[in-house]
Amino acid sequence: MNENTTSNNTIGIVNYGAGNIFSLTAALDRQGISYGMVNNEADLEKYSHIIIPGVGHAGAAMQKLQQTGLVEAIKALTKPVLGICVGMQLLTDHSEEGNADLIGIVPIKTKLFDKALGIKIPHMGWNNVNFTNNSLFTNVKPLAQFYFVHSYFIEYNPIFDIASVTYGNKFSAAIQKNNFFGVQFHPEKSGEAGEQLLKNFSMIR
């Protein structure tokens, strides 16, 4: 793949009001990746790649996404989609946070960390990510650390897992089903490793 292919790619960020996206757009700017906002269904057509950001409460985020009327259109997408943090959790069936039914693209569940395991909640900080051979992690160092901050996690399922992490128990740091990708950590805050991952995503075809 050459520079020209990259420059033709433009990321659409689903703008549904769940958390601030300033840091994400700043990270894309630093990488020279062009982007725009997705406010309605027609906007989804404008971009080669889609990012679903998200911070905060998964149930509340799902409600906000439903209000945009974009859920069915997102489900039908065949272009690369990346959910970040709560944006990734939305791709799953269900979250224990607010006992909420989510988009359900990936048939797995989002669960609350178990205090009984002797861990602090939220899981906050840099943790080693054990990724499989996946184009999202091209040129990322094995067991590189990414920045996490979350109280709910995505259950490990070998069918969809492309990167795992251990905190109390082993769970998915990244998942994939067909053209849908999700990362639990924040690539926009994860130093060089995170920037590489965003670049990789923008080049996935």
């Binding site: 840091s23 700017d29 994860s190 920037e195």
Partner: peptide, 11 residues
Amino acid sequence: VKSVARQLNIP
């Protein structure tokens, strides 16, 4: 804060 967020890749 905006200037910092534009440049900084850590929290």
